[in-house]
Computed example of a mutant assay.
Amino acid sequence: MATIGPPDPGEPTSPTLTAPGDIAGRSPSGTSGIEGRTPFQLAWQRLRRDRVAMISLAVIVLIVLMAFLAPLAAVITGHPVNEQYRTTGLTPDGLPRGPSSEFWLGTDDLGRDILVRIAYGSRISLLVGVASTALTVVIGVVIGLAAGFLGGLVDTILARLIDVVLSVPFLLVAIALVSITGPSLIVTVLVIGFFSWASVARIVRGQVLSMREREFVEAARSLGSSNSRIMFVDILPNVLAPVIVYASLLIPVVIVVEATLSFLGLGLAPPTADWGGMISEAQNYYTTSWWFVVFPGGALLVTTLAFNLLGDGIRDAFDPRAERLMAK
């Protein structure tokens, strides 16, 4: 007759059985203790450890806040953006006045407050940079997907179109078109977006060419998915990383191009506050009124530098191997 009691130390004991959920590291409630992380989550974790990129991101946030709070700057200083102070804002010789308690960053050649105009000018630069980049990415991604996935005659035609757009002297054609149509915000965005999509399309096309024969694409075909669904649902998420990197580096380029057009007198029509236009107006006063050149130029420099450094950080976050190779 069997007795109930503790096992004899000399007798072998059977291994303790665990539930399948315990073997997988799950809690009794059935939730997993190990969660997978997407490439974007991994990139964000690497980006957060990049001090230069995070400082650049903080600077960009401050610039965005300055753009949103531009009317508040006019209220605090008591100087509307286009108000000309001929008596208090200009010297008896008609020159701009330097920084003071009334005009914190000085005045321009018409006696307008430079601080307020820089704040309003940030709106134009950010709007053109983001809108043109968004238009560029949308056009480039669609054409790149179509060329890389469809192949054949479609790829040949679109690839030659990309080559033609890349070979066009962008700045000269942009100047010609803006001079014909007249300066305006919409024309500037459309011109920059139309001549910038080819680089994005070439990047996307190269990525799609290497993916269209992969197993997950063949599986989608076997399930009867249409070409558009495969391109935008199955392939597009896998090419977003290089597109995001390129877009982050394209924004400062677009801002500089917009400032260049404004400097040449082909940007927004006066008296709209614009950094490039302010620098253009200051070129005759750099020997007598340094603040007229330094502050608008500094705002443009800080903005483009912050976006470039953030773009470098995003690139390293998505492809850490490239950073290690460069270090070697």
Rank of each mutant, 00 (worst) to 15 (best):
G36Q: 09
L310H: 01
W104P: 02
S228L: 14
G298C: 06
V178T: 15
I235H: 04
R112Q: 06
V256H: 05
G277C: 07
I139A: 15
Q283A: 08
S210K: 11
A2F: 04
S100M: 06
I255V: 10
T38S: 15
W290R: 15
I279N: 08
I34R: 13
I244V: 15
T287F: 07
G30F: 08
Q207W: 00
M66N: 11
I203L: 13
D234M: 04
I279P: 07
V59R: 05
I235V: 15
I314H: 03
P270E: 00
P270S: 04
V130F: 15
T303S: 13
V204N: 02
P296L: 01
L127H: 03
M211L: 07
A67N: 10
V164N: 04
V233I: 10
L185V: 09
T107F: 07
I192Q: 02
N284P: 06
V81Q: 11
P20R: 14
V256T: 13
M211Q: 01
P20I: 02
V302G: 03
D155H: 09
V75T: 09
V164H: 00
L135D: 05
V191P: 08
A176G: 15
E83I: 00
Q207A: 13
G297N: 04
R229D: 04
P39I: 00
E218M: 12
L150D: 00
L236A: 15
R112E: 01
I255Q: 01
I235E: 04
G94Q: 06
D113Y: 06
D50C: 01
T304F: 00
L261K: 05
A134G: 11
I203E: 08
G206R: 11
T272L: 12
V128S: 05
R26K: 11
L166Y: 07
V189H: 13
V61A: 15
L190T: 06
I203V: 14
P9D: 09
P96M: 05
R86I: 08
L185Y: 12
I251Q: 03
V128T: 05
S225V: 03
L69E: 05
S228H: 07
W44L: 15
Y286L: 14
D108E: 10
G111S: 04
A2R: 10
L110C: 04
A43F: 06
R205V: 10
R321V: 06
G277V: 07
G25C: 03
I230H: 11
A201N: 04
L110I: 08
Q207H: 06
N82Y: 07
A317H: 03
R214W: 01
R315Q: 13
S225R: 12
R324C: 00
T188K: 12
I186F: 15
T91H: 09
I251N: 03
R229P: 02
F149R: 12
L62H: 08
E35C: 04
L190S: 12
P92R: 08
R112T: 01
A306I: 02
P7R: 13
D8M: 07
A259Y: 12
S289C: 11
G148C: 03
F103D: 01
R205N: 10
I60C: 03
W290C: 07
M326V: 14
P6L: 11
I157V: 14
L236H: 02
L110S: 13
W275I: 14
L95Q: 13
G94R: 10
W44C: 13
G10P: 00
L62M: 14
